[in-house]
Write a protein that binds this DNA or RNA. Structure first.
Lengths: 201, 201
DNA sequence: GCCAGTTTGCACCCGTGAGTGCAGTTGATT
DNA sequence: AATCAACTGCACTCACGGGTGCAAACTGGC
C-alpha cells in the first residue's frame, strides 16, 4: 500500500482491508498510522537487506587462481545484487525511504541505518580477502566495495527510470558485464591483468 | 514547499503565502495544485539540468598531452558535478521525482526525460574526444560517461543519507579523488598509464 | 477621472481520512 | 456453561485542505 500510493495516499482502512482485518485491529496492534508505516518499513528493510547481504556473501575466494574465475565470480555476485536491487520491493523501499526521510528523520537510521553499512562491509570483507590473495591489487577494500556497488546501482537507477520501467534481462546483463569489466580494469592486480591480456591476445 | 514537505503535505495556501500572493491568484494562474507542482518541478528540473550540463562542458580537451592534466581536468569536472549534485535543490528534485513518479507517470519524462540523457550525452561527447585524442583507451563513450557519473553519484547517495546529511568538503574531495582514480585506471589508454606509473615510480 | 482586468481577503462547501466509542460476535480456556 | 480477551462492523467526530464565490481594493491605460 505505502509502496504503491506513498505514505499520505495510503489509507489505514485500505491497509486493514488488504490485510484481511478490521481497521480497529490495526490500531489495537500498532496504535498509529506512523507506527504502521515504521513497522512495515523496518520489516521490509530487514528482509531486503538480508537478501542483499546473502547475495554479497556468494563472493567466496575459492578458485581464485585464474583471472577468468574471478571475473565470473564477480559477475555472478553482481548479477545477484542487481536482481535483488531491481526487485519491486527493493525499489519501493528506497523510494519511500527517500521520500519520507524528510518527514520522519529517524526512519533512515532505523531502517537503512546499519543495513547499507552491513552490505558494504560484507562486500568489503570479500574484497579484502581477494586483495590479500593477490587477485586484486592492494587497495582500500571499503572503497572498492563502495565503487563496485556504485558501478552496479548507478547505471540501473538511470535505466529503470527510478524503478518505474521494467529492465529487460539482456540490458541487466549488459550493465553487469560493463561494471565488472571496469571494476577489474581498475582493481585487478597488475600481474594478473597482464597475464589476462596476454591470454586474450 | 514541495521539497520540504512532499506533494501531499504541501498546502496551496502555504505556497501562496510564501510566494507573497493570495491563494486565489495561484489558482488563477495555474488552475490546479497538480499544475503548480508540475510547473515547479519543470522549472527546477530545467535549472538543475542546465547547471549540470554546464559543469560537464568544462571537460575540454586542451592540454591533453600529459596524464596529470587529464587527471586534474577530470577532478575539476567531477568536483563541479558533485557540488551541483549535492545542492539541496538537486536532492529535492530527485527525491520528489522518485517519490511522485508513481502518482504522476508523465512527470518523469517531462522533467527528467531528456535531461539525464543530455547530461550523459554531453559527457559522452567529451569522452569520445578524449578517446579519439588517445588520452582514453577506445571504448563506448556513453558507457564511460555512465560509469563516470555512477562512480560520483553512487557513493554520494550513501554518504549523504539520501541528501539529509550535509557532506563535509573533505569527504566530497575524497569521493572525487577516488572516482577519478578508479575511472582513470579503467579507462586511461595503456601507454599513457604506463608512462604515468613509470613517472610515479 | 474612468474602466477593465487582476489581486485580495474572507467565508464557505465538501470530500477525505485519522482516530474513537460501542455493542455484538467469535473463540479459546477452565 | 461461564468467562475473558481479542476481533469485527458501524457510526461517529474532527481536523485538514482543495477548490469556489463574492465583494472590495488595487493596477495600468485612455
Amino acid at each position: 500500500m505505502f509502496a504503491d500510493r506513498g505514505y499520505a495516499r495510503a489509507g489505514v482502512e485500505e491497509i486493514a482491508e488488504v490485510a484481511g482485518v478490521a481497521k480497529h485491529t490495526v490500531y489495537n496492534h500498532l496504535g498509529d498510522k506512523e507506527n504502521v508505516f515504521h513497522a512495515a518499513m523496518e520489516a521490509t528493510g530487514n528482509a531486503v537487506m538480508a537478501e542483499n547481504v546473502a547475495a554479497a556473501e556468494h563472493l567466496a575466494m575459492d578458485g581464485a587462481a585464474d583471472p577468468d574465475a574471478v571475473r565470473s565470480r564477480l559477475e555472478d555476485v553482481a548479477n545477484r545484487l542487481l536482481v535483488q536491487c531491481c526487485d519491486p520491493r527493493s525499489w519501493a523501499l528506497r523510494r519511500l525511504l527517500n521520500a519520507e526521510s524528510a518527514s520522519f528523520p529517524d526512519l533512515l537510521e532505523s531502517v537503512w541505518g546499519h543495513g547499507a553499512d552491513r552490505l558494504r562491509q560484507t562486500l568489503a570483507d570479500r574484497m579484502a580477502r581477494l586483495s590479500l590473495a593477490g587477485v586484486l591489487r592492494t587497495c582500500d577494500p571499503v572503497e572498492a566495495a563502495e565503487q563496485f556497488l556504485a558501478l552496479l546501482t548507478g547505471p540501473m537507477e538511470a535505466r529503470s527510470q527510478f524503478g518505474t520501467r521494467p529492465v529487460p534481462e539482456a540490458e541487466l546483463r549488459g550493465v553487469v558485464n560493463a561494471a565488472v569489466s571496469t571494476f577489474l580494469r581498475a582493481f585487478q592486480s597488475d600481474h594478473l591483468s597482464a597475464t589476462a591480456s596476454a591470454a586474450a591476445s
